[in-house]
């Protein structure tokens, strides 16, 4: 894990605390950092409490609660960025990014390009993937939409340390970044996090677990069931787990290096499998490693359906379905070893 600058004091943080800490550090480092979003000012400090205390400490001028106006939150962020500021917009559930899509896709993403490099819009848009108990409009994983839009960077951390380090990198990055959190991890995942400034660079995957039989590539919340699946297969199948951490830029070389050793790779994600991020990763691996892999690269993503409300219907990969997918990949006949060729 690379850090550009390290600070020695660390403390246990949830992911929400890591976000709060990153925003606090950024507001302290640079007067031009602004935060915009619904209910983000104290006493509420955001619906997930990620901005708790920040308006009190840094002022309501810089930590600004807005009406329910997603389109205008992002549009205002774009304008403020063109005006020299570094705005961070909080859009609560990722599904509400749909409201702001025009400003994100038509403006933030391509402002630099259309102006011949003169008007970049270095904003950060934070949003989270929700939970099926809120139904299909509060649980979508839409990262591939943004990956598909040139000009945007897309970041999806899985733990508190990366969350803070990546968010700080995103805020001071010169391009617009879509920063995707996950409600299910907000309070449940804890870890040691430096209290001061440090950066995790965008575009560097991290190898969370070394293994020799299979490469499992994942990111965001699916890192946790993937790690659990790898652990539960210990002694049976030796699984290497890679956390991409950012999807654009995409660190394909870490994936290639791993898969060229293990000869079998699978990509696991919570967004829809069809046309999902795994399609891009699999294609790039197949392109670079064609003929050297034992079997084609596999994918495991969500089923082709809106997220069902019923907890009995499973659309998104679980530890059990990941275990099953790894086993089936392991058992798949090696290419070129069919009886015809023996």
């Amino acid at each position: 894990m690379t850090t550009l600058e390290s600070s020695t004091d660390t403390t246990q943080m949830t992911i929400v605390a890591a976000i709060q800490s990153a925003l606090d550090v950024a507001l302290g480092l640079d007067e031009r950092v602004l935060i915009l979003g619904e209910d983000i000012a104290d006493p509420i400090g955001g619906v997930m409490k990620a901005t708790k205390g920040l308006s009190t400490k840094h002022g309501l001028d810089r930590v600004r609660a807005t009406p329910i106006v997603e389109q205008t939150i992002v549009g205002t962020a774009v304008g403020a960025a063109l005006g020299g500021y570094r705005p961070v917009a909080e859009i609560m559930f990722m599904d509400f990014l749909c409201q702001a899509m025009d400003q994100i896709i038509n403006h933030a993403a391509k402002s630099r390009y259309m102006s011949g490099g003169h008007s970049p819009a270095p904003i950060v848009v934070r949003a989270m993937i929700g939970d099926s108990k809120f139904g299909a409009q509060h649980s979508q994983a839409l990262e591939s939409w943004f990956m598909h839009t040139p000009g945007l960077k897309v970041v999806m951390p899985s733990n508190p340390y990366d969350t803070k380090g990546l968010l700080l990198s995103a805020i001071f990055d010169d391009d617009p970044v879509i920063f995707i959190e996950n409600m299910g991890m907000s309070y449940s995942i804890k870890g040691e996090v430096p209290t001061g400034d440090y950066r995790v660079p965008l575009g560097e995957a991290s190898v969370l677990r070394e293994g020799s039989d299979i490469t499992l590539i994942t990111y965001g919340a699916e890192v946790h069931p993937s790690m659990a699946a790898a652990q539960s297969l210990e002694g049976e199948i030796d699984v290497e787990v890679i956390d991409l951490r950012s999807l654009v830029p995409l660190d394909i070389s870490t994936c290639v290096a791993s898969a060229s050793r293990t000869k079998r790779a699978i990509i696991v994600h919570g967004s829809t499998e069809f046309c999902g991020p795994g399609a891009e990763v699999a294609t790039q691996l197949n392109d670079q490693l064609f003929g050297t892999l034992d079997v084609p690269v596999a994918r495991l993503g969500a089923t082709y359906s809106p997220v069902p409300f019923s907890q009995q219907l499973h659309s998104i990969p679980t530890e059990a379905s990941i275990v099953a997918a790894i086993r089936s990949l392991r058992q798949r006949d090696t290419v070129g070893q069919s009886p015809m060729n023996v």
Binding site: F96, H138, P308, S310
Partner: peptide, 26 residues
Amino acid sequence: TSKGKGGTMHLTDTERGLVATTGIVG
């Protein structure tokens, strides 16, 4: 009302004229 697939935010009963419910404000 929706076979358990919509949930509390998406009650729908077209026969009784509740044609859509949205979880998206506005």
